[in-house]
Structure formats: C-alpha cells, structure tokens
C-alpha cells in the first residue's frame, strides 16, 4: 500500500503505480533489493514525467526511466513481438523486469533475459536466475518472450544458475512470516512520496469526514 501510494505520489501514471509496487514487494520479499529499485523509481519518475521511453523497432532506450513503473509495458512489448529479441538499452535495475515476467509466465509464457554475463529464465512456475543478473544496477538487456503452447517446459537452465524458483519461494515464505524490514531512512523516503497524494486538512474538510456531526458520547 505504501509503495503504491509513493509511486502515485511521485507521479507514476494511473495503474503503473500498482504494478510497480507489486514488483517492488515481489523483489524485496525474495531478497532481490526491491526497496532499492523502488527508491530509484521514485527518484526518476519526476525526471521523466510526461515522457515515454523511446522505442524504435526492437530497441528501447531506457536510460533514466523508472523500470518498476515501465516493467509491465516492456514485458508486454516482448509478448507482442513473441520470438523476437528486444534490446532494452541502459535498463536500470534489470531485475525489476522479473516480477512481471513471472506473473505472465504463470499464464503460459516463457521469458529469457540476458545482460552481460547474467541470465534469467522464467517459464510457468519455474525460474532460474544467475546471481549476477540480480546484482546489475544498469545494463543492456536482451529480452525474448515465447508463448508456451502447449507448455513445452523450461528452456535449459543457465549453467551457473544460482537461484531457482524454489529458492525464491523459500525466501518469500520467510518474509511473509517475519514481515519486511526497511531501513528507517528508506521508509521515510517512501512515506514522504506517499504523503504527496494527501490533501491538507481544513475546517471544511474536517466537517466532511466521517463522524463529524454528532455527539460521540452516546
């Protein structure tokens, strides 16, 4: 909720704030630095407000764009160009593409992402993640979507796969049990952004809130 409001407060277009928030929580609850990606998005949304990434052919220029916010659009772009490699140039936080890819994979898609030496594959409920992919803060990413009809299984796992869907689910279960703990300064930045959707109170607004009109001592 706070992440969604923060993205909305920062100026994310309607609907992208929820996608972005869900992706941030997905990453953070699986130990993939979702909060850091969220804070980066909060910083870059204002700078790119009103602009959309430049996309020509199969190439998108993403330098300075908030990727949690645009992740669903980019994954959908790959789905529309199924089987074709899409180049995402200067993609901040490449791992921010994983949550939306995982969601679409559950609906019968396969995604392969490559950035430098890092690799990620997502299909159905399976996921292989080379550790270096999750660590990248910015990279050129090749993204390929393939429709799995009928489900034909997962492409070969990257040879140096360091994380699987089971590993991430185990991390997620621990996060659910213990809750997510954010550094106070990070939490403060999120709260500040979220507060931008609030309307200052006034005597008139107070009188239009619930329970303003009658004696409560009854």
């Amino acid at each position: 909720m706070a992440a969604s409001r923060a993205l909305e407060g920062a100026g994310a277009p309607a609907g992208t704030e929820r996608d972005g928030a869900r992706s941030a929580v997905w990453l953070e609850s699986r130990g993939l630095r979702g909060t850091a990606a969220l804070l980066l998005d909060l910083h870059t949304i204002a700078a790119t407000e009103g602009r959309t990434p430049s996309i020509a052919g199969h190439r998108a220029e993403l330098a300075g764009f908030p990727i949690l916010v645009w992740g669903s659009t980019l994954v959908e772009l790959a789905m529309l160009e199924a089987g074709t490699s899409i180049m995402l140039q200067d993609c901040p936080s490449p791992r921010a593409l994983l949550p939306e890819a995982a969601a679409q994979a559950g609906r019968g898609w396969c995604f392969q992402l490559a950035a430098g030496e890092g690799r990620a594959s997502v299909a159905g409920a399976e996921l292989y993640l080379d550790g270096s992919f999750a660590e990248l803060d910015s990279a050129d990413v090749r993204l390929v979507a393939t429709a799995l009809r009928p489900v034909s299984g997962l492409p070969p796992a990257p040879s140096r796969a360091s994380l699987t869907a089971a590993d991430l689910e185990a991390r997620h279960a621990i996060s659910l049990a213990n809750g997510l703990r954010l550094a106070p300064c990070d939490w403060s930045r999120i709260r500040v952004a979220a507060a931008r959707i609030l309307v200052p109170a006034s005597e008139r607004s107070r009188s239009r809130g619930a329970g303003a009109e009658v004696d409560d001592n009854e």
Binding site: P13, G15, I55, T73
Partner: peptide, 8 residues
C-alpha cells in the same frame, strides 16, 4: 505504451 495513464 504511448498512453500509460490508461493502463489502470
């Protein structure tokens, strides 16, 4: 992609 404000 060109009208992200309608995504919701």
């Amino acid at each position: 992609r060109e009208n992200p404000g309608f995504r919701k």
